[in-house]
Design a protein around this nucleic acid. Structure first.
Lengths: 155, 155
DNA sequence: GGAGATCTGTACACCCTGCCCAGGGAATCG
DNA sequence: CGATTCCCTGGGCAGGGTGTACAGATCTCC
């Protein structure tokens, strides 16, 4: 599925995204063309989705993160609700889920008070019946995929 | 906080991460030095954390995502638990939270059966008392920050 | 043992990057 | 109001990276 060289390449790019293909080849001890081919294939296969800028909401003033579990009215299905949620900028991510709730959203706000405003926006969404919110106080493990990449490596 | 030009720049880089500074300046209709300066400042201020490769766990074989709420034993605090969770590659993200539970983790697995293995690993973590898992069935809104960037723009 | 895939080393043309500078606005401050 | 400061522009320069192609050496799997 993934190679040791691939894993090291991803690790290197994660640690220092600014370096180019040539520098990668030097650090990894392989030819430049190899790095280029690997990168192309990783992107082709979808392992690497892209190199988009990693924006920090906190630096934008959105310093509070919360997770909202939604119960929605069964008629109409999830899609219309998801579409309306997507129209709210502070809604960062939406999943449909198993279990007690129907959907799980990650949202952000400029503060606890602002968070209330966002939650109100969500409650007002057509089809949403009940919400339950937990606030993220700290993030001991920020989002990461590197350990996964290493774990997925089969030499 | 953030400028319209900044927002357009981030939007452009999100849409086409491969383009360089010069191409950005052409598309935005500003001087190259300006783009360079903006980018530097955005990174300096932490708005852009970096340009790391965006790895898709699904393409690595981890096709199931789930959210696990943990209750932990109060003695000892969160940190030791977080450290042990961080040692599990399939644990992608950990937050401490308000409300019924104490921690919220995002985890992935190669399938529902593999997910059970990961959950067992978490249950076995010293200090974890109870867990409650919801599986993500679909992701109508994948993680995004662009709308936030636009919302944060003050001209 | 052979076919197909992959890596290496190299070469070439192009143009992008990082950096610096002088000048012109525009906004802020006293 | 004048002065200061900040930011953008347009330009130039040196250096090196990128995309691409190709032949030969290895490797791998059937």
């Amino acid at each position: 599925m993934i190679d040791d060289l691939d894993a090291r390449l991803i690790g290197l790019l994660t640690a220092e995204p600014r370096i180019g293909v040539l520098e990668c080849s030097r650090r990894l001890g392989v030819a430049r063309g190899t790095v280029q081919a690997r990168l192309d294939r990783l992107q082709e296969r979808g392992v690497i989705r892209g190199f988009g800028p990693d924006v920090d909401p906190a630096a934008l003033g959105y310093q509070v993160t919360a997770f909202v579990t939604l119960e929605i009215r069964q008629v109409g299905g999830h899609d219309p609700v998801a579409a309306r949620l997507a129209a709210i900028p502070e809604v960062i991510e939406v999943h449909t889920i198993t279990g007690g709730g129907d959907m799980l959203c990650r949202i952000v706000g400029r503060g606890n008070q602002d968070l209330q405003r966002v939650i109100d926006l969500i409650v007002d969404v057509e089809g949403v019946q009940r919400t339950s919110t937990v606030i993220a106080l700290a993030t001991p493990v920020p989002q990461r995929t590197l350990p996964l990449v290493r774990a997925a490596t089969r030499p």
